[in-house]
Computed example of a mutant assay.
Amino acid sequence: MSKMWTIFKIDQDAPISLRAIWPKGVPASKAVKNITFNAATYPNLVDRQKAFEEAALQLNRLGYNIYIVMNPINTAFAGDEHNGLAVKDADIKCRRLLLVDIDRAVTNQPATDEERDDIYKFGFHNIEKPYFFDKDLEPMSVCSGNGMHIYFPLDDLPNDAGTKANCRSFLLSLARQHDTADIKIDTGVYNASRITKVPGTVARKGLETEDREYQMASIVE
């Protein structure tokens, strides 16, 4: 899990926000948990990251899917480990990443190995880079457990209407060009406060079967 910080780069004094969501289609539904690890409680960034990792693993073992707010959060954000505040778009300092989320058209159960392989081939062959990405850095890919996430660095673009429109337009263009009957690009993940799956945690979706087992989200090396 510690490799995730190569993707989600955290500023020295920035909060780290975790969201734990009970998976759809799994019995005994539980309320969403929002937990923020801030510099007031964890002045050392490494300690803040470790606290996030420990909470993520604990909640994942209890059955939750675990997400992180992927863009930098303003230091003034009032969330902490107890009050359950969710990060909003206005709480985001800047745009550091753009997510391309590729999944199956039908997502009510875990993907098979063959379906995941098809998504990886789709992602590696069809997804071009946005013109506004940071050209000094390479995109990073994650197996989301059931699909594929590609993260494009954005060189800390302003969190404003123009950047939002560019992100949305890029995703819509990708979907128009490349969507198939079986594989879809999520066009709704352009918001600044976007949450995304935490590598190193098990991704649950519906109920497991012999050929549709839960998989761990992991960074594609």
Rank of each mutant, 00 (worst) to 15 (best):
Y64L: 08
D47A: 15
R96W: 09
A175H: 02
K33G: 03
I7N: 00
P130Q: 13
R176A: 11
L174A: 06
C94I: 10
T112L: 13
A20E: 03
L154C: 13
E53D: 08
K135S: 12
A55Q: 00
M148P: 00
A111C: 14
M4F: 03
I119Y: 09
K33R: 09
T36I: 14
N166Q: 13
L207F: 02
D13L: 14
I16L: 07
Y64S: 06
T75A: 15
V100E: 01
A28H: 10
G123V: 11
Y214N: 08
L157H: 03
D134Q: 12
K121T: 15
G200K: 07
D89S: 11
L98R: 12
N83T: 08
E210F: 13
I21M: 13
W5I: 00
D160H: 10
L62C: 09
K184D: 02
F124M: 06
V32M: 09
V32N: 06
I35K: 05
G188Y: 05
F152A: 09
K9M: 07
V32F: 11
R61P: 04
R95C: 10
K3V: 11
M148F: 11
T107W: 03
E54F: 03
A55W: 00
I68S: 02
D113N: 15
V198T: 04
V198P: 00
V198C: 04
T209C: 09
A20G: 05
I219H: 05
Q12W: 02
Q58Y: 10
P23N: 12
A217L: 13
K184I: 15
